[in-house]
Amino acid sequence: MNYFRKDRSDEIVNSRTSNTSNPRVQEVMSSLIRHLHNFAKEVELTQEEWEHAVDFLTRTGQKCSGERQEFILLSDVLGFSMLVDAINNPRPEGATENTVFGPFHVAGAPEREMGARITLEDKGESCLYEGCVTDLDGNPIKGARIDVWSDNAEGFYDVQQPDEQPKWNNRGIFTTGSDGRYSFIGIRPVSYPIPDDGPVGEMLKAMGRHPYRPAHTHFLVTAPGYQKLVTHIFVSGDPYLSTDAVFGVKDSLIAPYERTENAETVWRSPFNFVLTPFSHKSTQ
């Protein structure tokens, strides 16, 4: 009889799954149950700790709203979001790497002329962003759409301060010509903390971790025939690069920020995006 026993707990629970269930559901759930039961045995989880975990998950759900997703934040700070992204978006050598999408993208940003300014307020240090979008062989890609967004000089996105920042501040979409080049003027972004006034923030404090993300600018690059690229470029020298709260930094995504002299902007940040064709078969 498959009555519950501690030494065979995961096996007994998994034996109740019907053979007629969805094969993928069966695969995922049986693995989850096996790892979950083994985790509890490994750490000898106490009743008090189990109750605390239930309370934590309950409060995490209660913190979610139309503007905030505490469960995704939990996934982010545990490095799980980056792991899922890495599993699903492998890149060949030479291609620009993916990183987490983040919660602050807004569809429908304005299409802007190449070289335009996306900063709509008089704050921050101006920066010229420029480079080229190419394929794996270095050929320029015409018609690549570059959707860009970043925080302002105080570390907030426009959607976080709808009554303070102009709509579409530090956002824009640019389309490359036949030379594949792009350029626009934004600001040098700043480091900022993820929302830490909820259960996830409590967990970070208990683990002795800070909530900060290193300064970065978001890019969503798409082009016909190529895989979608969701990525950031990070400010070189930022103090939080090696301890990003959501593990989003990759060495290849750290961009130079060069001070300029007698130029329209205070900074210049060159960075090239290399896209992967749909036809590419990853060996990773």
Rank of each mutant, 00 (worst) to 15 (best):
D163T: 15
E113Y: 03
R145W: 04
C127D: 01
L73P: 00
G124S: 02
P140K: 10
D147H: 15
N169V: 04
Q160P: 07
G131C: 01
E125L: 10
K167A: 12
G79S: 06
T119C: 14
F174P: 00
A107V: 03
D85M: 11
V148S: 05
D147T: 09
G177I: 09
D197K: 11
I194F: 07
G108E: 03
I146Q: 00
G79Y: 04
L120N: 00
M82V: 12
P92C: 06
G108D: 04
S75C: 12
F71H: 13
L128A: 07
Q161T: 07
I173R: 11
R171P: 02
E154F: 10
V84H: 06
P189A: 12
L120P: 00
P162Y: 08
V100L: 11
V133K: 06
I185Y: 00
R91D: 01
G198I: 08
N169L: 08
L128E: 08
E111N: 13
Y157V: 08
F174Y: 06
P195R: 14
T119I: 05
G172C: 02
F71L: 14
E70C: 15
A86D: 15
F174R: 05
M114C: 06
A107P: 04
L73R: 11
V100K: 04
G155S: 07
E113K: 15
E93Y: 10
R188A: 15
I173D: 01
T175W: 11
I87G: 00
V190I: 14
D147S: 14
R117P: 00
E97T: 07
G198P: 01
I185C: 05
W149D: 06
W168K: 08
E130K: 12
P193V: 10
I173E: 08
D197C: 10
G138F: 07
I118G: 05
E121Q: 12
N152Y: 12
I146Y: 00
C127P: 04
P195G: 09
R68L: 15
F80K: 04
I185A: 09
F71K: 09
E111K: 14
V77K: 07
D151F: 10
E164N: 15
G180P: 09
V190L: 03
G138L: 05
V106D: 01
T134G: 02
Q160L: 14
F156D: 09
I187P: 04
Q160W: 09
G124E: 02
N139F: 04
V148I: 14
G102T: 02
P166C: 13
E121A: 13
P103M: 03
N169S: 14
V133N: 05
G172P: 01
D197L: 08
